[in-house]
Computed example of a mutant assay.
Amino acid sequence: MEKTKTVVSIGGKEYTICGTDSAEYIHRVALHVNKKLTELKKANPDLNNIQLAMLTSLNIADEYMKTSDELAAAKKELERTQKEVERLEKGAGTTNRTTPFNKR
């Protein structure tokens, strides 16, 4: 896959990002990071750039971990539900046979 060079702005500075993802995706990621950095800078104006970058990284990692945990729980629930559906379908196939109506 070809590498894409994309210039993004984070915290008022421009960075050239190289990657195999589309330029649109790289911009979306950079916008997310910039949004978090801006929010944290407003809430913590006394932090220096390194502290701000670290806090931004920790907040994004926190979001990632929570989302990852939610996804894992949803996958487990889906598997449990699929097994229950299979069990019910098997049970319905053996115990709920219909008999034809008697004609009068």
Rank of each mutant, 00 (worst) to 15 (best):
L40N: 03
K103V: 13
N44W: 02
K90R: 14
K5M: 13
E24H: 09
R87S: 10
D62A: 12
Y15G: 04
Y15E: 04
S68H: 11
P100K: 14
R87P: 01
T16N: 06
L88W: 07
R28M: 09
N49R: 05
T81G: 02
M1V: 08
L52I: 12
K83G: 03
Y25L: 05
G91Y: 11
H27K: 14
A92N: 12
E86P: 07
N102Q: 14
L37D: 01
R28L: 08
K76R: 11
D46P: 00
R104V: 13
A43P: 02
V7K: 13
E77R: 12
K83V: 06
L37W: 03
D62E: 15
R104M: 09
Y64C: 09
K13F: 09
I17M: 03
N44E: 03
P100S: 10
Y64G: 06
E86N: 15
L55Q: 08
K42C: 06
K35F: 10
E14W: 00
N102D: 11
I60E: 01
Y15W: 07
L31D: 14
Y15I: 07
Q82W: 01
E77C: 04
S22I: 03
G12C: 05
L52H: 04
P100G: 08
E63L: 10
A74M: 13
E63N: 14
K75W: 04
M54D: 03
I50T: 15
K5V: 12
N48C: 09
N59C: 03
T81R: 08
H32D: 06
R87Q: 10
A61Y: 02
P100F: 08
R80L: 09
E2L: 07
D62W: 09
L37G: 01
H32Q: 11
K42E: 15
L31V: 08
K36L: 04
N49F: 08
S68E: 11
E84A: 08
G93S: 15
K41G: 02
T67P: 00
L31Q: 15
Y25F: 10
S22V: 02
G93K: 14
K36Y: 04
A43N: 05
H32E: 10
D21I: 00
L31H: 13
T4W: 00
